[in-house]
Amino acid sequence: MQKVFGRPQGLTDLPFHYCPGCTHGIVHRLVGEVLEELDIIGDTIGVAPVGCAGFSLDFFACDFVGAAHGRAQAVATGIKRALPDKIVFTYQGDGDIAAIGTAHAIHVAARGEKITTIMVNNAVFGMTGGQMAPTTIGGQVTTTSPYGRDCALVGAPIDLPKTVATLNGAVYVAACAVDTPKNILQAKKCIKKAFQVQQRGLGYALVSVLSTCPTNWGLSPVDCLKWLQENMMPVYEMGELKMTEEVKAL
């Protein structure tokens, strides 16, 4: 029988440990496909965060390093400065990059560090059981905002890509989602571009991907996609937020 569909070479054959309906699997696949299509699996070092993607270092086929919570971009900086000719990327959740790792998220962009960051935003701390993240939407119920996020009390969610886009060293910033086939294809284009930016040594590239968390949101996978569209998309600026002329010419 002819094999018509399989895993991209950028992924190992280990089964994902993610919850059913979680979109981490889709994002993993997109990154795996991009690594394969750009033929950089053997030249890439990934950095895993702390959180649900803490075990992503087993799922990607390239070399991988596990970082402390929020420190992935500092670790990636060390790797890239040591091996400037290699491809270095971080794969981080919103809790990791936009809370405890914010200082690094800002400064890695300010320095124009030639790395790629994939930020997966599901509006909660997933691994610890669905606590409020800096990205939690106003009114959203989590275990640490049981009456809904009160923005008057704890502030409004942070739109990290928008903030990062203001920094000169960030040459490509995109905010995508993996809620529909169309958006999944668009997300892949953005992820691919973010790696191509690094291949050309143009500067820092960040792709944020709005993602779902059926387990902690307490919704079915299909309802999660609807919730993402109705609640997250209006809050987070979507699309290619920043592209320098050099990136446009890619």
């Binding site: 070092i45 950095v47 390093v65 970082a67 402390a68 420190r71 500092a74 670790v75 990636a76 900086t77 060390g78 790797i79 890239k80 400065r81 040591a82 091996l83 200082a103 690094h104 400064h107």
Partner: peptide
């Protein structure tokens, strides 16, 4: 300092 030691961590992996 947190960034600095973690940059060391990254560099040391190479």
């Amino acid at each position: 300092e947190v960034a600095s030691i973690n940059m060391c961590y990254g560099a040391a992996t190479t």
